[in-house]
Design a protein around this nucleic acid. Structure first.
Length: 303
DNA sequence: GCGTCCAGGTCTACC
DNA sequence: GGTAGACCTGGACGC
């Protein structure tokens, strides 16, 4: 497609575009699309009352370049910059994290490479819905559910790509829709209930970004959403900037066994003990540790 | 092609 | 508070 307008953003000195884009699976879920040959991340952004806009993000030595699918005014451009800063965690202060990692020879590569910024969606609502789509199923099914949500309910951008549906749009659909069209199975009623709670204002998930609660209370709050258990809540906590939970699932347990326990299964307590020295950063330390090899050339080809 | 089994995380009922 | 079984899909496997 032809891009109409270019916006640039300066990034922090330790920012690593590749590590952030491939920090976890979100770059492979619509409305993100990754061109791994050219290292371009495409994203459709919801613009509220107006048509969604498609942006293409690439990295330069000192910043990000954003090409947009149409020319926009100053306010819209500022809003796009806000969304990109949010998605790439450009305003997260990781100073203490990097200091802790640099002090441990096994983890110093994280500081050296500027890993640890976990890509997120422009809204907590989108991250929450996607997180529920990752529970209790294969990654292929997660992709299928998210693709159906975007294709069935998203709004078209200038280039025909679609945005992620808003809570208001999702609230209008029945559980049968999520079961039959999205193939969400038993999660179907969870989606309609969640969307209705958010759309009505009863549940303010965007407020989680500024919510200052102890870990256990925060977990309790997130688990009030049906379909969110320990794994989903601890992963969501990472996306709002809290890293004290390990978010263990079958994949991370298997990875730990392979990379840190001579191929033998380890108890959750043992995994917790291993990363306990990183205190409130332990969840992020674990995730970086388990995904270090993702940027090896032979692994990039698999994305 | 069909039937069966299994993995995956959360919910609910029960102890 | 802890636990067993149900939930649902898709892939692997055997026939």
């Amino acid at each position: 497609m032809t891009f109409k307008m270019k916006i640039t953003i300066k990034t922090p000195p330790n920012f690593n575009f590749h590590r952030t884009v491939l920090s976890h699976g979100w770059c492979a879920l619509l409305p993100f699309e990754l061109d791994k040959e050219k290292w371009k991340l495409v994203r459709v952004l919801d613009r509220g009352q107006t048509k969604p806009i498609t942006i293409e993000i690439t990295a330069t030595r000192t910043g990000l370049t954003i090409n947009t699918s149409r020319t926009v005014g100053k306010r819209a451009a500022e809003s796009i910059v806000r969304d990109v800063r949010h998605m790439f965690r450009l305003d997260d202060d990781l100073t203490q994290f990097y200091a802790a990692m640099a002090a441990d020879s096994d983890f110093a590569w994280i500081t050296d490479q500027g890993a640890g910024r976990l890509l997120r969606s422009p809204t907590v609502f989108e991250d929450l819905v996607k997180m529920i789509c990752t529970t209790n199923c294969s990654w292929a099914l997660t992709e299928k559910m998210v693709t159906a949500l975007v294709n069935e309910l998203g709004e078209e951008s200038d280039d025909g790509r679609k945005s992620f549906p808003t809570a208001e749009t999702m609230a209008k659909q029945t559980a049968a829709f999520y079961r039959d069209k999205v193939r969400a199975g038993y999660r179907a009623p969870y989606f309609s209930e969640l969307a209705q709670r958010v759309a009505s204002g009863e549940l303010d998930v965007e407020g989680w970004l500024k919510l200052d609660l102890p870990h256990d209370s925060f977990m309790k709050e997130m688990k009030r959403v049906k379909g969110v258990g320990n794994y989903a809540a601890e992963n969501l906590l990472k996306l709002v900037g809290r890293y004290d939970g390990l978010a263990l699932d079958s994949w991370t347990r298997a990875q730990f066994a392979q990379l840190r326990n001579h191929g033998r299964a380890a108890s959750d307590k043992k995994i917790l003990r291993f990363y306990a020295r990183f205190n409130s950063w332990r969840g992020l330390a674990l995730w970086c540790d388990m995904t270090r090899h993702w940027l090896n050339p032979e692994n990039i080809a698999k994305w």
